[in-house]
Amino acid sequence: MSIQHFRVALIPFFAAFCLPVFAHPETLVKVKDAEDQLGARVGYIELDLNSGKILESFRPEERFPMMSTFKVLLCGAVLSRVDAGQEQLGRRIHYSQNDLVEYSPVTEKHLTDGMTVRELCSAAITMSDNTAANLLLTTIGGPKELTAFLHNMGDHVTRLDRWEPELNEAIPNDERDTTMPAAMATTLRKLLTGELLTLASRQQLIDWMEADKVAGPLLRSALPAGWFIADKSGAGERGSRGIIAALGPDGKPSRIVVIYTTGSQATMDERNRQIAEIGASLIKHW
């Protein structure tokens, strides 16, 4: 067993022997301040990774656009098919120029040779490549099948209805392509620590998230040296922004954090800054 596999296998073990965790309302004060600064709703939840206990939450059962955070769930569904012998990570998928959609920095470079399922998941999570996500959605049967996968996990809230990039439209009061912070946090925890996926697939999923290259201005910008984070960000229309993450000190994750916002007129930089400040408060009061 590799060191990384050992780390993920012992996530519940280490967490069980940690000192009790206590909620700190100071972080919620910052979440509410972010709402004021952005002029928009902000949803927040913080779960203990081992027990699933909610440590703090704000608007945990209000719907927010998922945006690209759905790509972690998508690759979880792909990995479940791999575990069941219905898919192979090494299978190569070929596609054409007509398949390319807006923001496809990886797939646009491989029109000639195609990409493997493993490479597509890596591109979808680490670079948020939209064509990679659409190609992977095709392998599982489309958005409705991802929703069905989530329902089978016990998540009857999260739903995907459309493809990239239309799913980022974020129309107010439109339930399409949305989740709730509580539902997303619980589902992410199941994917990373539950028995739904094999140990190898859980490790692969967290490795992809740990290698995320496009979430630097968010929670990662607030992390002290030595902290662990595996995350996936999302951005959408109407001032929408979000991030889902597993993080913790001492090089291992111990909490799940989900943050979503929508309806702001603020710039992307300002949305990023507010999420980073929430992260800084979380870490300060850990």
Rank of each mutant, 00 (worst) to 15 (best):
His24Phe: 08
Pro25Arg: 14
Pro25Asn: 14
Thr27Asn: 04
Thr27Cys: 05
Val29Ala: 15
Lys30His: 08
Val31Met: 07
Val31Arg: 00
Val31Trp: 00
Val31Asp: 00
Lys32Leu: 12
Lys32Phe: 08
Asp33Met: 13
Ala34Cys: 09
Ala34Ser: 09
Glu35Ser: 04
Asp36Phe: 12
Gln37Cys: 12
Gln37Lys: 13
Leu38His: 07
Leu38Ala: 07
Leu38Ser: 08
Leu38Gln: 06
Gly39Asn: 12
Gly39His: 14
Gly39Asp: 14
Ala40Gln: 09
Arg41Phe: 08
Ile45Cys: 14
Ile45Lys: 01
Glu46Tyr: 08
Glu46Lys: 10
Glu46Arg: 05
Asp48Gly: 06
Asp48Ile: 04
Asp48Cys: 06
Leu49Ala: 09
Leu49Trp: 13
Leu49Phe: 10
Asn50Phe: 11
Asn50Arg: 13
Ser51Arg: 08
Leu55Trp: 07
Leu55Pro: 03
Glu56Arg: 09
Ser57Tyr: 09
Ser57Gln: 12
Ser57Leu: 08
Phe58Glu: 05
Glu61Ile: 10
Glu62Ala: 08
Glu62Ser: 08
Glu62Gly: 07
Arg63Ser: 07
Phe64Val: 04
Phe64Met: 06
Pro65Trp: 00
Pro65Glu: 01
Pro65Asp: 01
Pro65Ala: 07
Met66Lys: 03
Met66Glu: 02
Met67Cys: 10
Met67Glu: 03
Ser68Arg: 01
Ser68Tyr: 01
Thr69Met: 04
Phe70Lys: 04
Lys71Arg: 01
Lys71Cys: 00
Lys71Asp: 00
Val72Ala: 08
Leu73Glu: 03
Leu73Trp: 03
Leu73Gln: 06
Cys75Tyr: 03
Cys75Gln: 02
Gly76His: 00
Gly76Asp: 02
Ala77Asp: 08
Val78Tyr: 00
Leu79Asn: 03
Leu79Gln: 03
Ser80Met: 12
Ser80Thr: 14
Ser80Phe: 13
Arg81Ser: 08
Arg81Lys: 12
Val82Ser: 08
Asp83His: 05
Asp83Glu: 11
Asp83Gln: 09
Gly85Trp: 06
Gly85Met: 10
Gly85Ser: 10
Gln86Leu: 12
Gln86Pro: 07
Glu87Ser: 06
Glu87Leu: 12
Glu87Asn: 06
Gln88Ala: 14
Gln88Ile: 13
Gln88Glu: 15
Gln88Asp: 15
Gln88Lys: 15
Gly90Met: 13
Gly90Glu: 15
Arg91Glu: 06
Ile93Gly: 03
His94Lys: 12
His94Thr: 12
Tyr95Cys: 02
Tyr95Ser: 02
Tyr95Met: 07
Ser96His: 14
Ser96Pro: 07
Asn98Cys: 06
Asn98Glu: 13
Asn98Gln: 14
Asn98Ala: 14
Asp99Phe: 07
Asp99Lys: 08
Asp99Glu: 11
Leu100Lys: 05
Leu100Asp: 02
Leu100Thr: 05
Val101His: 07
Val101Pro: 02
Glu102Ala: 15
Glu102Tyr: 15
Glu102Thr: 15
Glu102Met: 14
Glu102Lys: 12
Glu102Phe: 11
Glu102Pro: 15
Tyr103Val: 06
Tyr103Cys: 05
Tyr103Met: 07
Tyr103Gln: 05
Tyr103Ala: 06
Ser104Met: 02
Ser104Arg: 03
Pro105Met: 06
Pro105Phe: 05
Val106Trp: 08
Thr107Pro: 02
Thr112Gly: 15
Gly114Asp: 04
Gly114Arg: 03
Gly114Met: 01
Met115Leu: 11
Thr116His: 03
Thr116Asn: 09
Val117Thr: 07
Val117Gly: 01
Arg118Pro: 05
Arg118Phe: 13
Glu119Trp: 00
Leu120Ile: 05
Cys121Glu: 00
Ser122Glu: 14
Ile125Leu: 10
Ile125Thr: 06
Thr126Met: 09
Thr126Trp: 03
Thr126Val: 09
Met127Pro: 00
Asp129Ser: 00
Asp129Thr: 02
Asp129Ala: 02
Asn130Lys: 02
Asn130Glu: 00
Thr131Met: 05
Thr131Val: 06
Thr131His: 03
Ala132Phe: 01
Ala133Thr: 10
Asn134Ser: 03
Asn134Gly: 01
Leu135Phe: 07
Leu136Asp: 01
Leu136Trp: 03
Leu136Met: 08
Leu136Arg: 00
Leu137Ala: 06
Thr138Cys: 10
Thr138Asn: 15
Thr139Glu: 15
Ile140Cys: 07
Gly141Phe: 05
Gly142Asn: 07
Gly142Glu: 06
Gly142Met: 03
Pro143Gln: 07
Pro143Asp: 01
Pro143Tyr: 04
Lys144Pro: 11
Lys144Ser: 12
Glu145Ala: 12
Glu145Gln: 12
Leu150Gln: 06
Asn152Gln: 13
Met153His: 09
Gly154Val: 03
Gly154Cys: 06
Asp155Gln: 00
His156Gly: 12
Val157Phe: 11
Leu160Pro: 04
Leu160Phe: 08
Asp161Gln: 05
Arg162Met: 04
Trp163Gly: 08
Glu164Thr: 01
Pro165Glu: 06
Pro165Ile: 08
Pro165His: 06
Glu166Ile: 10
Leu167Thr: 08
Asn168Met: 00
Glu169His: 10
Glu169Cys: 09
Ala170Val: 10
Pro172Glu: 13
Asn173Pro: 06
Asp174Tyr: 03
Glu175Asn: 11
Arg176Phe: 08
Asp177Gly: 00
Thr178Gln: 04
Thr178Val: 04
Thr179Ser: 09
Thr179Tyr: 04
Pro181Thr: 04
Ala182Phe: 15
Ala182Thr: 13
Ala182Ser: 14
Ala183Val: 14
Ala183Arg: 10
Ala183Tyr: 11
Ala183Trp: 08
Ala183Asp: 07
Met184Phe: 09
Ala185Gly: 12
Thr187Ile: 09
Leu188Phe: 11
Leu188Asp: 02
Arg189Pro: 04
Arg189Met: 15
Arg189Cys: 14
Arg189Asp: 08
Leu191Phe: 11
Gly194Trp: 08
Glu195Ala: 11
Glu195Gln: 15
Leu196Phe: 13
Leu196Gln: 13
Leu197Ile: 09
Leu197Gln: 05
Ala200Met: 10
Ala200Gly: 15
Ala200Glu: 14
Ala200Ser: 13
Ser201Met: 11
Arg202Leu: 06
Arg202Met: 08
Arg202Val: 09
Gln203Tyr: 09
Gln203Met: 11
Gln204Gly: 06
Gln204Thr: 11
Gln204Tyr: 09
Gln204Met: 13
Leu205Trp: 04
Ile206Ala: 10
Asp207Gly: 14
Trp208Glu: 04
Met209Phe: 00
Met209Glu: 02
Glu210Val: 14
Glu210Cys: 11
Glu210Arg: 10
Ala211Tyr: 13
Asp212Met: 04
Ala215His: 04
Gly216Trp: 08
Leu219Arg: 03
Arg220His: 06
Ser221Ala: 15
Ser221Cys: 11
Ala222Glu: 13
Ala222Met: 11
Leu223Ala: 09
Pro224Lys: 08
Ala225Val: 13
Gly226Gln: 10
Trp227Val: 00
Trp227Phe: 08
Trp227Leu: 00
Phe228Asp: 04
Phe228Ile: 08
Phe228Thr: 07
Ile229Cys: 09
Ile229Glu: 02
Asp231Tyr: 04
Asp231Val: 04
Lys232Glu: 03
Ser233Trp: 02
Ser233Ile: 00
Ala235Glu: 03
Ala235Gly: 10
Gly236Thr: 06
Gly236Pro: 02
Glu237Asp: 13
Glu237Val: 10
Glu237Cys: 14
Arg238Ala: 11
Gly239Ser: 05
Ser240Pro: 02
Ser240Cys: 08
Ser240Val: 03
Gly242Lys: 03
Ile243Gln: 04
Ile243Glu: 04
Ala246Glu: 05
Ala246Asn: 06
Gly248Leu: 00
Gly248Thr: 00
Pro249Glu: 08
Pro249Tyr: 06
Asp250Asn: 15
Asp250Ala: 14
Gly251Trp: 08
Gly251Ile: 08
Gly251Met: 13
Lys252Pro: 06
Pro253Phe: 09
Ser254Glu: 14
Arg255Gln: 05
Arg255Leu: 06
Ile256Gln: 00
Ile256Thr: 03
Val257Tyr: 04
Val258Met: 05
Val258Glu: 04
Val258Leu: 06
Ile259Thr: 05
Ile259Ser: 02
Thr261Asn: 06
Thr261Phe: 13
Ser264Arg: 06
Ala266Trp: 08
Ala266Asp: 12
Ala266Gln: 12
Ala266Ile: 09
Thr267Cys: 11
Thr267Arg: 11
Thr267Lys: 12
Met268His: 08
Glu270Gly: 09
Arg271Met: 14
Arg271Asp: 07
Asn272Val: 04
Arg273Cys: 10
Arg273Met: 11
Arg273Ile: 11
Arg273Asp: 10
Arg273Trp: 10
Arg273Thr: 13
Ile275Ser: 02
Ala276Glu: 08
Ala276Lys: 13
Glu277Ser: 11
Ile278Tyr: 03
Ile278Gly: 00
Ala280His: 15
Ala280Phe: 13
Ser281Arg: 12
Leu282Asn: 04
Leu282Ala: 11
Ile283Glu: 01
His285Tyr: 11
Trp286Ile: 04
